[in-house]
Amino acid sequence: MRTKKRHVRLLGTHAVLIILSVIMIYPVLWMLFSSFKPTSEIFSSPGLIPENWTLQNYVVGWQGAGGVGFGTFFLNSFLIAGAVVVGSIFIASLTGFAFARLKFKLRKIMFALMLMSIMLPIQVTLIPQYIIFHELGWVNTFLPLIVPSFLGVSITPFFIFLMVQFIRGLPKELDEAAIIDGCSTFQVFWRVILPLSKPALITISIFAFYWTWDDFFSQLVYLSDPSKFTVSTGLNLFLSNAGNSQWGALFAMSILSIIPVIVIFLFFQKYLVKGVSTTGMKL
């Protein structure tokens, strides 16, 4: 009797989730199917399913432009995003731990400064930062896109704050017990806090990767040499003014560009499933 009731509930849950998924995913399907349409069909015929299927958009799009293909763009994006993930984990865990667990002078002011640093729109800070990086000779390298993440600049204050909130959610008796046992502060951080912060660190990795992958403005400004272009600046190459844009190729490459992030999310999300504990928190 009870199992039957459970089955019905489970079925209901699945039904709700399927319906929600379809609604949420419809616009993406529109883009997916458009990527298989000839350009002349994308805007002039309203139907979702292509009348004439074509792979041409993918073939043309993949070639990129000026002799540099999307293969290179993907590689560059992976390199930058991968480095930013490392930088974000580095800075968020160190700084987050300090703010959440350590007592020091000026803590509140420092914390406020950290949060305020993300309240200035990049549209304004771009020029000053560009000048700094230009003086360092870093323009047209990946460094201006990577180094800030190791120093808690650009998107990383978000991660530091996230880490603070998560660590503050961990019972303090853990650290105290470790300290009584003779652990140094660093050991408390390394052996107690870090292992327990896995969900937060995975969340940070997913975001750091995706946001870097998706970032357009700073990549556009700092990278000039086409062989250093990334996926998002590569997509931009299909857009010209005066309507001479290549929509088909744009859609096709947009679809390809989200596949890596989907795969990464699909892989990592299982660490966020309740009940599949990996942290030793199970009692």
Partner: peptide, 22 residues
């Protein structure tokens, strides 16, 4: 060395480069 972009952002990039002396 060619430097090309889409229209979107070209002018932001240009003025940044001019402002930064490059």
């Amino acid at each position: 060395t060619p430097q090309f972009t889409g229209w979107d952002g070209y002018w932001a990039k240009m003025s940044t480069q001019f402002a930064g002396g490059s």
